[in-house]
């Protein structure tokens, strides 16, 4: 188990206002889990709690056996940043930042106080860019890229970070159909080849069923998880009014 949530409750305004009742969840290495639910159901909040950026209201989240939010007994911030990465598409890089500089930010957790990059770091950055097929526009500013290109660049940054758990917040929100398929295929390959656990929030049931191992749904005050093949039969997707 690479990420383990136990008796977890998440939200902003106290346990009585939590997004859902307490739940347990375990993520295996190499597994892709799709996180689904209506707008405002707390998907982004849950991802932030998994990433250790927000304290859980109750219960705890552990990655590789250590707490993600407790800085004393769990991971410290630097160690944590080598374990988990939360990829969000909303953040805007400054106009002048090039693709290579942006992917290079992924090596920040491994750089010293002067933020240098070793030859090894440079190689990892090159590999990450090659893997996501963004080497062609390495020198272009990120801000000038199309949405599809930008999504791949953001993924490359997280790959360069060499984490065990990758969390993605609606990565296909701005992508067309072929690019969404390509993105989810890439996520599957990444999870398998790098032994990473992946949790990806999305609104597309089609991609979730096709590419995820399991589907996690936040709905009606409950968090439920089922294998992708049986989620529909078990009623996890009823809220989406299929059929």
């Amino acid at each position: 188990m690479i990420l383990e949530a136990s008796r977890l409750q998440f939200g902003y305004a106290g346990v009585q206002n939590a997004f859902a009742a307490e739940f347990d969840f375990g993520l295996e290495a190499g597994e892709v889990v799709a996180l689904m639910g209506e707008n405002g159901c707390g998907k982004s909040t849950l991802l932030k709690v998994f990433a250790g950026l927000l304290p859980p209201l109750a219960g705890k989240v552990e990655i590789c056996g250590k707490d993600v939010y407790d800085r004393k007994d769990g991971w410290n911030l630097l160690e944590l940043s080598r374990k988990v990465s939360l990829v969000r598409m909303g953040v805007q890089p400054p106009d002048r930042m090039t693709v290579r500089e942006f992917v290079g930010l992924g090596r920040t957790p491994y750089s010293g106080i002067l933020d240098g990059r070793s030859a090894e770091d440079e190689r990892i950055i090159d590999d990450a860019m090659a893997l996501l097929d963004v080497t062609r526009f390495a020198r272009r500013p990120v801000a000038e890229l199309s949405d599809g290109e930008r999504t791949r660049v953001y993924l490359a940054e997280a790959v360069a970070q060499q984490v065990d758990v990758m969390l993605l917040d609606e990565p296909n929100a701005f992508l067309d159909i072929p690019r969404s398929h390509a993105l989810f295929r890439t996520l599957r390959e990444l999870a398998a080849s790098r032994k990473m656990g992946v949790v990806v929030s999305t609104h597309s049931i089609e991609y979730a069923e096709k590419y995820a191992d399991r589907i996690m749904v936040v709905n009606g005050g409950l968090v439920r998880v089922a294998p992708a093949g049986s989620a529909r039969a078990e009623g996890l997707l009823d809220w989406a009014c299929i059929g």
Partner: peptide, 24 residues
């Protein structure tokens, strides 16, 4: 300023992003 080099390079993308890269 120089001791905060990692912060200066990572903060372009916002506080949460920098924190996710292990920057205090």
């Amino acid at each position: 300023v120089v001791c905060s080099m990692r912060y200066l390079n990572a903060i372009h993308m916002g506080d949460d992003f920098a924190r996710g890269l292990g920057v205090r």
